[in-house]
Structure formats: C-alpha cells, structure tokens
Design a protein around this nucleic acid. Structure first.
Length: 658
DNA sequence: TTAGGGTTAG
C-alpha cells in the first residue's frame, strides 16, 4: 500500500491537460499507512471491495457521481485494476462523456492493459465517431501482443461503419482471419455483415453470410435489412421466407422495410400476418405500421392503428418515438387537431416530435403555430436540426412571411451552426417565388453556393405559374429538362404557363418535346373515403361511375348557385387551345369535383368531406371548392401532392396561396 | 456484446 500511495504522488493532477483536469477527482488519497493484514484475508477483502466498486459504478447517473467513485477507486488502490477501470470506461461511454477528456486519462495510467480494457476504450472512441483514435488503440494493443477479443473486432467494424471506411473495414476483416479463429466467431461474423451492409457493400455482406460457417437469426436479419436499405424488397422477402425461425425483430424489419420503401399496403398486410401468427409486437413494430398509415393518408387507417396502439398500451404520453410517428400520421391523414393532441400529451418531447409537429402545422397552413412552436423548442433548449428548418421555412413560404423566412434562414448558420443544404435553398427560392419576387428567386438559384437541384428550379417554375411569367419559366424549365428529363410535371407546368399567356406555339413545342420523349400525361386522380370507410377513386373526365348521373346533377346545381354569387369558371386553368364550351366541360369533370359530388351525396352533413389528390389543384377547382364550402356550409379537406387545404365558410386555410 | 424505429422541399 505504501508503494501504491507513492505511485499516486507521481501522477499528480497537474500533469493532466488543464481543460480536462476538471473531470478527474480532486481528492488526493490518504497517505496514512494501514494496519497489517494477512495476505489471504487481504485477497478476500480486495475482491469484496472490487465488487463493491463495480456495483457503485453501475449506480452512477452523473459525472460527479462517477468522479466520487473514481476517487474511491484510487483511494482503495485499484488504479491498476483493469476489471474495475473497464467498467469505469464503459460507464463514461454510456454517459457520452468525451473519451479524450477522461477515459483516455484513466487508460493511460494503467501499465499492463488487458484486452477488455483496450476494447472498452476502442468501443468508446468508436461510438463517439473517433475512429482514428480507436484504430490507434488497436495497433497499440497489437504491438504489445495483447490478443483481441470478439468484442474488439465488433467495435472496430462498427467504427468503420460510422466513418464510411470500407478499406479499413476490409483490412480488419483480413486480420480476423489471420488472428486465430475469429473468422469463425459468430459475433464477429455478424458485426462484419452489419458493417458491409451499412456501407452499401451488400454483395460482400452476402458473401460473408454464405461462406463463413454458422449463422443465426441475427445474421439473417442483418442481411434482410441490407436488402431493405437497398430498396430490394423482393430479395428481402425471399430471405425472410427462407428464415427457419422468425422472431419479432425479423418480422418488424419486413414491416418497416415495406413502409420505408413506399409500399404501405404491403407493410399493413405483413403486419396483419404477424398478428395472425401470434407474434408479439412492440413499439418499433408499431412505428413502422404508423408510418405506413401516414403514407396512405386515410383517416380510416389512422383510427385503426390508434386503437391498436392504445390497446397495446403504447400511448404517445409515454413513448416519444410512437408519439412522433403519430403526430406525423395524423397530420398526413388530415387531422392536425389530433396531431396536436398527441403532441400535447407527450411527457417527453424531442427534436423529432417538435419537427413533426412544425411540419404538420406547415402542411395545413398554420404558419404562426409552426413558428411559435419553433421558438418554443429553441427556448426550452431543444436544438433544431436540418429537418426542423425545412418545416419552418415551408411554413413561412406558404404564408408569404418573407422577412421571417429570411431571418430564420440566416440564423441557421449564425445561431444554430447548421449550414443550409440544397433543400433549404429550395425553400428560400420557393418563399421568394411565392411572394412574387421572381427576379430575386432566380438570382438566388443562380448564385447559391451549392449546385441547384430539381427542387430549386421546380420551386421557381411553380412560382412562374402563379405569377404568369413565361420568360423566367423557360430558364427554370431548361434546367429541369436537363436534371429530370423524364419528369412529366415540369413539361405540363411549362405548357400551362405558355397557355395562360396565350403562347400557343410554345405550347405546341412543349407538347412535341413530350411526344418525342414518349412521355404521357399523368391523369388527375382523386380519392375519397366514403361513409363506409371504402376508398373510392375518381379520374378526371371519367363519366363511368355508377352514380355519375346524380353526381352530374349535384355539380350542375352547385355551378348555378355559385354563378349566382359571382363565381365564373377559370378558363386559364385549361392548357388546351379548345372552345370555351369544351373548357367548361373539362373543368366540371376534374377529379376533385367528381369526388366532391360523390362526397356530398354519400357523407353525412356533420362530417367533413376528405379528398386526396395526386397532383396540384387547379385555380378553378380551388375557387369552386371555396364557394361550395360557403353555400353548403360543409367542411372540405383536400390533400394534394404537397399539402392540405381546409375549405370552410368560403375560405381556404392556404389563403388562396398554394 | 451483435439484428428492427419517428420528422424533409418544387
């Protein structure tokens, strides 16, 4: 003990770099000589102390607590004990305390490091994204002939995944084969598959899976997720069906996979199968299903999953991830009120919950609510991320709040240290464009520090349509035709802009381009959720519906009543050079009008009529629906390809600005 | 100690 005390005095606190020394215990161990105790008794005492220190470390929840126990470790003479110090480093890792500021100092004080201690530091560095440092520790341990353990490789592979370094991963993969037997370790094998999958080298992952002996449920699931992430649901499905014994995680990987790959119906089918087979579900499964329901956008599915979530006891109150998913779902299913209710009851809120709610408000045209929430989150110390700003800027954009938008855009870098990405520039071009500042929007697109993408030029083209500016439209469209040669919407927009300016020759030129490329117009389509919860589909100009006669009657009746209060069909919404009579006929059979007519016939007056639409609503339909909400006193909610419109009492929540 | 999770613009 005297010796140990002596050693303490040779590692004075002031040897530690100043900025880190605050982390280490300030208490210098006592130098008094303890009474003599026989050796065997000392050993027993030591192992008792050891387990006491370990349990004390396990109970730590804050840095000061750790420092207190660390002081005890030093006082009791355990500053060279790998077992105890490994635990200390693991706790520091768990609490996300920078490795360089504390764990490394602890590590450096140990002379004979065992594999566990080295691995704890490697893992700590790797989880903090400091791969170079973790590799250095690994080389050091190899130099000193400390044999790695499976966990060492697992940590290193994870690190390679974090920093996207497949070459390093391959090198370490080679080492697992060279250093006796690790190539056959299932734990190492699984980490290896995980790394290759994460880095997008699915083939290598598959090779490891096929060639190395032994595989377990985790190996299978890892590979399934690899296919899911690559968007190959077919291969994922094949592998899943070959999987001899499937557990909740494997099932969930499939459900979530379908949801993530824009196949919401398949996701729900899979979930139903999972329930039928009696597989347990947890909050992760539910999040996948909720996300699928959000994509379907129908209140029917929202209510269905709400009941399931409640019955399983996963309310938004207690589970922040389920809560955030629900906020998104309710917003996308047309009920921003339900979204806000879920948001309100959440006990824990994070950047996801706030961002989802902000995006929800923005989507429904509640710009002030979105901004208020943004300021609230900043005030209570939740740091916004890139996605948050997309929501906030969209809210400003859809409500013509140019100055606020500008200020927030500027604050991104200055105040929050987030450099704006292409998408944020795209929001700004949209903001300026929608407000009618087309020149400024064009200027921003042309001078922005990043390469503008389709989003940027598309926003500008959309604004040119609103403000009928064929000249700037042409510039934006030329960029778009290069970036997205097959996106039909751009050609249609440009042709509409030319049509409303009466430039019929240019319209023909755009039509010719479309013909040459073999592009065909995506027909306008609307969906309506009927009284019975069935989703009905309506195509523009389609007169084959069994109740078309009644629907036509409803529409004509509405048209006459609307004309009496000053409505006139907006012929500019038709980009064909045809007679006014023909234009009127085309207008009255736009898909949302057909859906509306059916909704008025089918849905009780107390309920809103909810319509979904695949493309942007035309000006005529928009003013028609405003008028209908006034004369019928009905609430009509339309979700177009971008956002929601709530028509009520002759007004729309978008303020005629969409 | 290893597998499945929520928010994104025209």
């Amino acid at each position: 003990m005297v010796h140990l005390s002596h050693k303490f005095s040779t590692i004075p606190i002031n040897f530690i770099p100043k900025q880190f020394s605050k982390h280490l215990p300030q208490q210098i161990p006592s130098q008094t000589t303890p009474p003599f105790i026989p050796f065997s008794q000392r050993q027993n005492q030591r192992s008792l102390l050891e387990s006491q220190l370990i349990s004390a470390l396990n109970c730590c929840t804050s840095l000061p607590q750790i420092q207190q126990i660390h002081a005890r470790i030093l006082r009791k003479g355990f500053e060279q004990c790998c077992y105890v110090l490994t635990k200390l480093i693991r706790i520091l890792t768990k609490m996300e305390i920078p490795m360089d500021s504390y764990a490394k100092l602890v590590f450096n004080q140990v002379e004979n490091r065992n594999p566990f201690l080295c691995t704890a530091l490697i893992r700590g560095y790797c989880l903090q994204g400091l791969v170079k440092e973790s590799v250095l520790v690994y080389s050091e341990m190899r130099k000193k002939s400390v044999l790695p353990i499976s966990f060492t490789f697992s940590a290193l592979f994870k690190a390679c995944g974090v920093v996207n370094d497949v070459d390093l991963g391959r090198q370490i993969h080679g080492q697992t084969i060279l250093i006796g037997g690790f190539g056959f370790d299932l734990f190492v094998k699984n980490s290896l598959i995980e790394m290759y999958v994460k880095l997008g080298f699915l083939g290598c992952g598959r090779k490891v899976f096929d060639e190395l002996p032994g595989r377990d449920l985790i190996s299978w699931t890892e590979l399934i997720v690899g296919y899911v992430k690559a968007g190959d649901m077919e291969s994922a499905g094949e592998l899943f069906s070959e999987l001899p014994k499937k557990d909740m995680v494997a099932w969930t990987a499939m459900v979530t996979g379908y949801a993530q790959n824009a196949k919401p119906r398949e996701a729900l089918e899979f979930f139903q199968r999972m329930l039928n087979e009696g597989v347990e579900t947890d909050e992760v499964t539910l999040v996948g299903v909720i996300s699928a329901c959000a994509q379907l956008g129908a209140a029917k599915y929202a209510n269905w999953i709400r009941d399931i979530v409640e019955n399983l006891g996963f309310s938004p109150t207690r589970c922040v991830v389920v809560g955030s998913a629900l906020i998104d779902m309710y917003s996308k299913c047309g009920s921003v009120e339900d979204a806000y209710k879920a948001f309100k009851v959440m006990e824990e809120k994070n950047v996801f919950s706030y961002s989802s709610m902000i995006a929800g408000f923005a989507m429904h045209g509640y710009a002030y609510a979105a901004l208020e929430l943004f300021h609230e989150m900043v005030k209570i110390g939740i740091k916004p991320n890139k996605v948050t700003f997309i929501g906030v800027l969209t809210a400003c954009s859809h409500s013509r709040m140019v100055e606020q938008g500008r200020q927030i855009f500027e604050s991104m870098e200055e105040k929050f240290g987030i450099s704006p990405g292409v998408d944020h520039y795209s929001c700004m071009v949209d903001l300026l464009g929608r407000a009618g500042c087309l020149e400024e929007a064009l200027n921003l697109a042309e001078t922005m520090p990043l390469e503008p993408n389709g989003g940027v030029w598309g926003a500008l083209l959309g604004a040119c349509r609103t403000y009928s500016n064929p000249d700037i439209a042409q510039i934006a469209a030329n960029h778009l035709f290069e970036l997205e040669p097959n996106a039909i919407g751009n050609y249609i927009l440009l042709s509409n802009i030319y049509a409303s300016a009466g430039r019929w020759n240019d319209v023909l030129m755009v039509r010719k381009m479309m013909r040459e490329k073999g592009l065909r117009k995506n027909p306008g389509c609307s969906w309506l959720e009927t009284k019975k919860g069935v989703i009905q589909e309506f195509f523009a100009g389609d007169m084959s519906h069994p109740r078309y006669g009644e629907m036509k009657q409803v529409l004509e009746d509405l048209l006459n009543r609307l004309k009496a209060i000053g409505y006139q069909p907006n012929m500019n919404s038709i980009a064909y050079d045809v007679s006014d009579e023909e234009k009127r006929r085309i207008l009255i059979t736009h898909s949302e009008k057909l859906a509306l007519a059916f909704g008025l016939l089918d849905i009780n007056a107390d309920f809103p009529i909810r319509i979904m639409k695949n493309i942007r609503m035309c000006e005529d339909c928009h003013s028609f629906l405003c008028g209908v909400s006034q004369i019928t006193r009905r609430v009509i909610i339309v979700r177009d390809n971008l956002r929601f419109h709530h028509f009520h009492d002759g007004k729309c929540s978008c303020g005629n600005f969409w």
